[in-house]
């Protein structure tokens, strides 16, 4: 972790101090190349073009009590998708339970066994949809610099508008903007009644809570929470190799991503952006996050639909 270059510079520092104290012995420059190499490195200027994310992604700065944070907004239609079918299915989830004799109830009779069927058609999580309505959901997925003890820099959100899905990405342009990010998230969350995530119970929500404590801020999300990973495991654990979001995307939504950035690369991309400012290198992270959020939303109806099988 302390690299050779750091050691050399620390050595130089010590020698300067010793020189200042007037030590009798001075070590003359050595024949070896390391000093020359270092001098050469210092001579070439580091050349990179700094571009802010604002110049590449449409969006604006939102002021919070902790300063500004960058927000990028998209509509589902901007992605070339038709929102209407998805909106209908989400709305249907908020419908009350099937009555005896109804068409829905008849479909249940075709299920394999009663507990299975009941569970499939009317899982307990559905109560949240019925109670609050699909327009009061906030979908959330975050990108961070590590699994723990690291900053969060990107929060992807989605909610259901009148005729479209609204996707928002809150972005901290550097480490100092994380506070503003959390503040804006808290403000937005106040306008919703329940949270839907994928693995949020283990990761996203505790992570955000820890970061808020770290910054001595109140916890940003104080909402009932549905973690779709738990539902997916319950339903599809036996039939699928794993329940990762991309696996479900393929087997349930019948869609595969091309060239997505790997989760392990993301932290270093952000660190590089903060230090060097090459915004185009960060675009894949925004894209990855967007795809994750969209996949989450699109997975909701299949999770509740007993007729959906896996591919």
């Amino acid at each position: 972790m302390i690299t050779k270059a750091m050691r050399e510079r620390i050595g130089d520092l010590l020698r300067e101090e010793a020189g200042a104290e007037g030590a009798r012995v001075k070590v003359p420059p050595s024949q070896n190349g390391w000093k020359a190499a270092r001098a050469a490195r210092a001579a070439t200027p580091r050349h990179f073009v700094s571009t802010g994310i604002e110049e590449i992604l449409p969006g604006g700065l939102v002021e919070t009590e902790h300063g500004p944070v960058f927000v990028h907004e998209r509509l589902y239609t901007d992605l070339g998708e038709r929102p209407a079918p998805l909106l209908r299915k989400l709305a249907a989830l908020s419908a009350p339970a099937p009555e005896r004799g109804s068409r829905a109830a008849r479909r249940l009779r075709r299920a394999r066994d009663l507990p299975d069927a009941v569970a499939l058609a009317d899982p307990p999580e559905r109560g949240l949809f019925r109670r609050f309505g699909h327009q009061r959901i906030l979908y959330l997925d975050i990108e961070t610099c590590g699994l723990s003890a690291a900053p969060v820099f990107l929060v992807g959100l989605c909610h259901v508008g009148e005729r479209n899905l609204v996707l928002r990405q809150l972005f901290a342009r550097d480490y100092a903007e994380e506070r503003a990010l959390l503040a804006e998230l808290a403000r937005i969350a106040q306008g919703f009644d329940f949270l839907v995530t994928f693995n949020g119970k283990s990761f996203d929500v505790p992570f955000l809570r820890d970061r808020a404590i770290h910054h001595r801020m109140p916890p940003p999300l104080d909402l009932p929470h549905l973690d779709q990973l738990w539902m997916a495991r319950r339903r599809w654990k036996e039939s699928l190799p794993n329940c990762r979001l991309t696996t479900l995307e393929w087997h349930v939504l019948r869609r595969r991503r091309a060239g997505d950035v790997g989760g392990a690369e993301i932290p270093e991309l952000y660190h590089d952006y903060v230090k060097r400012g090459e915004a185009h290198r960060l675009l894949p992270v925004f894209h990855h996050n967007l795809l994750d959020v969209v996949a989450m939303v699109e997975l909701t109806p299949p999770l509740f639909d007993p007729d959906v099988g896996v591919y």
Partner: peptide, 12 residues
């Protein structure tokens, strides 16, 4: 990385 007089850890 220095930002506003504070040095943040900027490595993975």
């Amino acid at each position: 990385k220095s930002l506003d007089g504070l040095r943040y850890w900027s490595s993975g």
